[in-house]
Design a protein around this nucleic acid. Structure first.
Length: 593
RNA sequence: GCGCCCAUAGCUCAACUGGAUAGAGCAUCGCCCUUCUAAGGCGAGGGUUGCAGGUUCGAGUCCUGCUGGGCGUACCA
């Protein structure tokens, strides 16, 4: 219907241009909105206000001319001029119902758009360090990323979902060493566990597995392990010098490597990362979040891509040496300060890997890169874009979507979290507690850059306080009505007959719900472009409300065959759109509740 | 200090990207189940959109300056 109005308005403009009322060289973007207020008809355009200046006449006068120049159309029953110069369109009832037939035909495809025109997009999300189980903070990124990826695919993009695995670097060594130390404890060694080590219970689980596979063969006596190690925080060495937790853990890592030897250390390291990644993958899969690729940072280093990227920056003349380190001159591209890519000790920074990773993404010929990051990484954006620019690739290809932290509340109390201390609410606990559907819906029902309060008690309440049930209930209700057709002895639902009699659906509720259904495809396009899956959540709530309201207003299973089938075909259309929308959000559509 | 993000009903959040009278849910108060699922519906109250300017036909939305909160400001990841 919008397209029809669009065409009519363009004709009107051309007519006015031919009649010299409007100049030839006008610029405008035609905007047609569904109205919020019924008094304003079904659709409205602000065209006259936009063109008033270039036409050299008041908006309302121009609006009158536009309306006069508008061709007749069977679906448009009335046009009005209102307010400062809006043109309001009233559409006839049959035209509004046409969408129902369309939904029946397109079914699961209804709402798909060509917004993306097949452009290839890489959506990278979660990418949590594999140093422990996912916590509720990662859950938001997972839910947002998965829903956004679904949405983009539905809107005509070619989408690849990727998880970047930070399996290199010091954190991984801390992890491996933590596992080994717990293993030593299981073997019967006693010592104080480093304050900077990973203390979660899952470390013990991995250590037990290590013991199961290697027995006591990796055991070293604790006095040997601790010999010559800088003491931990809160301790002092033989000379009475205070300890340092960072140097303490680094010494322990070095000692682990030395005592175990490269091969055995690798065994510990690999078992730790393998176990944790397997757990993360399973966790996400249960949450309905699947990836096409798990991209390893180590593979990036081993294949020489990191060196190649640094080389590329060097060729561009953007690398210099200072204090024994290699720096990237990111300030040339608007960054606050230059950044180190190779440290004085020869170790490449995480940033170096990241430069290489983004270079690699573009080499894989993705047109758009969407990175979903926690908001605490926002300072990173300028330097990554700077590197892309310096390497001769287009920095605008990268779009970073920041996701704010979710603050968890339980019983009105704020639940704190930190991975290192092992004190955090895991995503798995959250899913067990509130269920996947409620968790997915809650996460994605707030704009991603908005701080979010996640009320556990509300999310798990199976009551009218919980919006996800409201939507699912609408779906279950429709299923129930369809079920009742035979139970009440009516002849089976006949979709053909129903669609042929849509003209019978003239009540206000029926008109409202049909108008709502017609908005779904444009919503998809808009939400995809804005990278805002939360719009889907709100739309579904509105649609569910329209259904509940309709349901309560009038009986649906009436004696009259033609009318009953028409109403049922409308219900089937609503059901379909609920399913299509819920699917995008990764929320199930139960048939009964 | 500097940079980025945020601020909307008592609470949690929307607002079609600059449009008409700023909307939902929860909470509060009425009403509606002998009839298709009451996890529902109908109605009422509740607002100087943090503050002050500016831009224009028109600002919650854009620009400037404040205030308050979050995050960042490493040769960590």
């Amino acid at each position: 219907m919008k397209n029809t109005l669009n065409a009519l308005l363009i004709t009107a403009i051309e007519n006015l241009q031919a009649a010299q009322v409007l100049p030839q060289d006008i610029h405008y973007t035609l905007q047609i909105d569904a109205t919020k207020n019924k008094a304003h008809g079904d659709f409205a355009t602000n065209l006259a206000m936009m063109l008033a200046k270039s036409a050299g006449m008041p908006p309302r006068a121009l609006a009158e001319k536009l309306v006069a120049a508008l061709p007749e159309h069977e679906s448009v029953t009335k046009t009005d001029i209102a307010g400062p110069g809006f043109i309001n369109f009233f559409v006839n009832e049959q035209a509004k119902m046409a969408v129902v037939t369309q939904i029946h035909q397109q079914a699961a495809q209804f709402g798909q758009t060509s917004t993306g025109q097949g452009a290839s997009v890489l959506v990278e999300f979660v990418s949590a360090n594999p140093t422990g189980p996912l916590h509720v903070g990662h859950g938001r990124g997972a839910a947002y990323g998965a829903s956004l990826a679904n949405l983009l695919a539905f809107a005509g993009y070619q989408v690849t979902r990727e998880y970047y695995v930070n399996d290199a670097g010091r954190q991984m060594d801390i992890l491996a060493t933590s596992v080994w130390l717990r293993y030593l404890e299981l073997c019967g060694e006693t010592f104080r566990f480093p304050s900077n080590g990973y203390k979660g219970d899952y470390i013990y689980a991995i250590a037990r597995q290590l013991e199961g596979k290697f027995g006591q063969t990796l055991r070293k006596p604790s006095f040997e392990v601790m010999a010559g190690i800088v003491p931990d925080d809160g301790e002092t060495d033989a000379q009475g010098q205070p300890g340092d937790k960072e140097r303490h853990i680094d010494d322990l890592i070095a000692k682990a490597k030395a005592l175990l030897g490269a091969q055995d250390y690798e065994h510990v390291f690999n078992m730790a990362i393998h176990d944790i990644l397997a757990d993360i993958e399973e966790d996400l899969a249960e949450f309905g979040v699947k990836f096409d690729n798990w991209f390893s940072e180590r593979s990036l280093m081993h294949s020489g891509v990191v060196d190649a990227a640094i080389e590329k920056l060097q060729q561009a003349g953007k690398i210099y040496e200072q204090n024994g380190a290699l720096w990237f001159r990111s300030t040339d591209y608007g960054d606050e300060k230059d950044r180190v890519v190779v440290r004085e000790n020869g170790i490449k920074t995480y940033f170096a890997s990241d430069i290489a990773y983004h270079f690699n993404k573009l080499e894989r010929e993705f047109e758009t890169l969407i990175d979903i990051w926690g908001a605490d990484h926002h300072g990173y954006i300028p330097r990554v874009k700077a590197a892309m620019d310096a390497m001769g690739t287009n920095p605008d290809a990268l779009q970073v979507q920041l996701v704010q932290f979710a603050i968890l509340y339980r019983g009105g109390e704020r639940a704190q979290m930190s991975t290192r201390s092992g004190q955090f609410v895991t995503l798995r606990e959250l899913r067990d507690e509130v269920g996947n559907d409620a968790a997915r819906y809650f996460y994605v029902s707030r704009k991603s850059e908005q701080h979010m309060d996640f009320d556990l008690d509300l999310a798990k309440s199976k009551s009218n306080e919980n919006p996800v049930y409201y939507i699912q209930y609408a779906h279950a209700r429709i299923c129930s009505v369809l079920q009742q057709v035979s139970e009440k002895g009516f002849s089976a639902f006949d979709a053909q007959a129903g669609l042929a009699n849509l003209a019978l659906l003239t009540t206000e509720h029926e008109q409202d719900v049909a108008a709502k259904l017609a908005q779904f495809p444009e919503l998809i396009g808009r939400a995809a472009e804005a990278r805002e899956p939360h719009q889907i959540a709100y739309y579904l709530k509105d649609l569910a409300h329209a259904l509940h309201s309709y349901y309560n207003a009038q009986p649906l299973l009436v004696e009259d065959d033609a009318l009953r089938n028409a109403r049922l075909s409308l219900l089937v259309a609503i059901k379909q759109v609920l399913v299509n929308g819920l699917t995008l959000l990764g929320v199930s559509a139960p048939e009964r509740m």
